[in-house]
Amino acid sequence: MFEARLVQGSLLKKILEATKDLLTEATFDCSSTGMSLQAMDSSHVSLVSLMLRSDGFDAYRCDRNLSMGINLTSMTKIIKCSSNDDVVTIKADDNNPDTVTFMFESPNQEKVSDFEMKLMDLDTEHLGIPETDYSVVVKMPAQEFQRVCRDMSQIGESVTICCTKDGIRFSASGDLGTGNIKIAQSANVDKEEEAVVIEMQEAVTLTFALRYLNFFTRATSLSGQVSLSMSPEVPLVVEYKIADMGYMRYYLAPKIED
């Protein structure tokens, strides 16, 4: 028996929005710890890693580990049938292992819907990602990062991110010319969410495809802040924290000189 109740049901809409450009299907792994998902896009250039801890749900029961192969397009259709203020419960019954049920309850309990969705048998590749001490971790407002990625993609297909203790610089070049955006570390801020904070061991310069970074910024509604973790010649980690529950992380392989 698996049952996970989420009063803030609209969170699932935001999570699906944040995966839709990268994934069409994925396996949700459910255990007593929580629900997690790890999946690469079809080109294997980027990876989505979602964690929703069990203690972040309003009720959570998972008697035994369960892997649910989900067509995310189908799940999106079903989740769109919920209202933003609905309570969402995800249920899976051991006696009926090929389906998952989504139940939506209006806040006043006057409307209750349930949708049963067929599960898929997915043969997904799982990557072992080691714990890494990154050379640079930048925390910045998620909306600011979204704006930078959007603006850089007006200029070119790739962005070079150069991070020093003074700040973070994004550079792009293309047929029309070049663009640079430099954001300094905040001197002092009243609101933590508006701060730009750079923790640095060594300066790093890396180049990434903007197409994927723009896909990652679909998660902007999940969190006020985003963190970018970088080390020389390794994948970038872009993390959006999901308050009191976990995170949505994206990994992106860099572009490197041959």
Partner: peptide, 14 residues
Amino acid sequence: PQRQRTLTDFYRSV
């Protein structure tokens, strides 16, 4: 001159 790497260049399947 720069080539897009894949994640499998960096991480192993488990």
